[in-house]
Design a protein around this nucleic acid. Structure first.
Length: 299
DNA sequence: GGTCAGGGTAGCC
DNA sequence: GGCTACCCTGAC
């Protein structure tokens, strides 16, 4: 069914759960806390619950069992295999990157269960506009509030209500002050203008998956509130442009601490990363980001 | 209650 | 391309 190494898949449609035994390169904590997504939160038992593509899912890992709860086999096959990119052989990527240098080798060992999610392009566009000059807990809170107010109710799971991510029209029809009331700060106008632009040109954001990485980033940067860093993130997390190397404060620290780039400008760091790691630059960035942020290196 | 920094961007040269 | 002004919020 999918290529990533595993022993067996246990389907329990009656209890709405899928269990995979011996699934390699999959750690919920690494996946959901490496900074690529904002709508997954840890439960008390260590599992994570989140929403994507209008479906609520709970993911846990106990010993060598990865368990997907609140789903049936149909959705697992059609949505989650793709979302978690289970057809990609991470062992090969990790092996390649580990050989690059000792820092990346260390970072890959540290975040060995990271996978880059294939998230919705539109959701990434707005989410990373919100991320500009913002903190991760705050970004999550803003997205949560916006979804509650302008999204569609999906399900109550474990005592919590889940709402879909708002559509372009929902933002375009909302007054800027109302958007701002969700603690977006100065990014309110970016959300509003970008939504209006997407509506006006009747643009299917996910169609950027079909164009080249450079063309994709260029188009993204034409939207208000999208600069180089944000475009790189959207391209990487929403459009599968793995040759993106987003440079934020943390990656900047990595480059300065590990790669002797003290006096390098941000555009040059980006170029440096892309040239160093090539088509897998995005994967390298995620391992490095998770490693330095979790260990607060360079602060 | 000031100061600081957070997954930066826009606008100007 | 590089530099600067600016942007809002929560934590200390």
């Amino acid at each position: 069914m999918f290529l990533e190494e595993h022993d067996e898949v246990i389907i329990d449609d009656e209890n709405r759960s899928i269990t995979i035994k011996g699934l390699k390169n999959f750690n919920p904590k690494h996946i959901f806390e490496c900074g690529q997504c904002f709508r997954w939160d840890p439960e008390e038992d260590g599992s994570y619950t989140g929403i994507a593509f209008g479906k609520v899912l709970n993911v846990s890992k106990v010993d060598d069992l990865v368990v997907f709860k609140n789903t049936n086999f149909e959705d697992f096959k059609n949505i989650w295999v793709e979302y978690f990119d289970l057809n990609r052989r991470y062992s090969e990527i990790k092996e390649m990157l580990s050989k690059k240098d000792k820092y990346l080798n260390e970072a890959v060992k540290f975040g060995d269960g990271i996978r880059i999610l294939k998230q919705d392009g539109w959701e990434m566009l707005i989410s990373f506009i919100i991320s500009a000059n913002n903190r991760i807990p705050m970004i999550k809170r803003v997205i949560d509030t916006l979804s509650k107010k302008y999204g569609v109710f999906v399900q109550n799971y474990n005592g919590k209500d889940f709402y879909s991510f708002p559509s372009p029209i929902a933002f375009a029809e909302t007054h800027m002050q109302e958007i701002r009331a969700c603690s977006t700060g100065f990014r309110d106008k970016y959300i509003k203008k970008t939504s209006e632009a997407v509506i006006l040109e009747d643009f299917e954001v996910n169609s950027l998956r079909e164009v080249s990485g450079d063309e994709c980033r260029k188009k993204l940067m034409s939207y208000s509130g999208v600069g180089a860093k944000v475009a790189d993130c959207i391209a990487l997390f929403g459009m599968q442009k793995y040759d993106s190397f987003p440079v934020d404060v943390w990656v900047k620290r990595v480059m300065q601490e590990f790669y002797n780039a003290q006096d390098m400008s941000l555009p040059k760091m980006r170029k440096f990363g892309v040239e160093l790691f090539g088509k897998d630059a995005g994967f390298a960035q995620q391992y490095l980001f998770y490693y330095v942020r979790e260990n607060q290196i360079g602060k």
